[in-house]
């Protein structure tokens, strides 16, 4: 892995900086575009608005690739997200199971807390669109917690994470391309 990224790092530092700055600028611009669209759109859940927002966010994501790769290379990302055991590649006997009862209990506590928050949202009858957004957000956090601690992904090699998660994320994101259609079909239905 490292050799491959090293070959990318042949760029002069200054160029790196400029490139990253430009990319970040573009990414930021697209995020601003998406946000302003969200703000301005009267009805956020219309095809046009969704389409525009999604496309802007996707483009922002694409522009983030280079800065992220740079961050990875310079070790910024590694320090932030990598598992504790990951640096110890050369260890003779890799530690395979980590975590204490206390840790798992606190994770369980978190999951229960999030579930209670979700149920509470249902109790106070939050408007549907907001409710959906919050629920999906909370569910993703819960899923991440389960994946990371219960399913132990945090203590595996990062390469496993890199292999599994993008596959899933790409496919699920792709499935969301269906949605402009569902909104349209709603409008085109001839028998109600």
């Amino acid at each position: 892995m490292s050799t491959r990224f090293a070959s990318l790092g042949n760029l002069v530092k200054k160029q790196d900086l400029i490139l990253n700055a430009v990319c970040l600028l573009f990414a930021a611009a697209f995020v601003v575009m998406a946000l302003s669209n969200v703000r301005r759109a009267g009805n956020f859940f219309s095809i046009d608005s969704l389409f525009f927002t999604l496309v802007s966010l996707m483009l922002a994501g694409i522009f983030m690739i280079i800065p992220l790769m740079w961050a990875y290379e310079t070790g910024l990302l590694r320090n932030l997200f990598a598992a504790e055991g990951d640096d110890a590649v050369g260890e003779a006997v890799p530690v395979h199971f980590e975590g204490t009862t206390k840790l798992f209990l606190s994770i369980l506590g978190f999951l229960l807390l999030l579930t209670v928050i979700e149920v509470f949202l249902a109790y106070i009858q939050v408007p549907l669109a907001l409710m959906l957004t919050i629920l999906i957000g909370l569910s993703l956090i819960k899923a991440a917690l389960i994946l990371a601690y219960f399913m132990h992904l945090r203590y595996e090699r990062m390469s496993l994470v890199y292999t599994l998660i993008p596959m899933l994320v790409i496919c699920i994101c792709l499935l969301f391309i269906f949605f402009p259609d569902s909104f349209r079909i709603f409008n085109l239905r001839n028998y109600r």
């Binding site: 979700e118 249902a122 569910s139 819960k142 899923a143 389960i146 219960f150």
Partner: peptide, 19 residues
């Protein structure tokens, strides 16, 4: 845990959004 994880999506989407 995977079965549990799936329920973390089924529960809000099927139940909580139908309250």
């Amino acid at each position: 845990h995977f079965v549990d994880l799936v329920w973390m999506f089924v529960f809000p989407l099927i139940y909580l959004l139908s309250v």
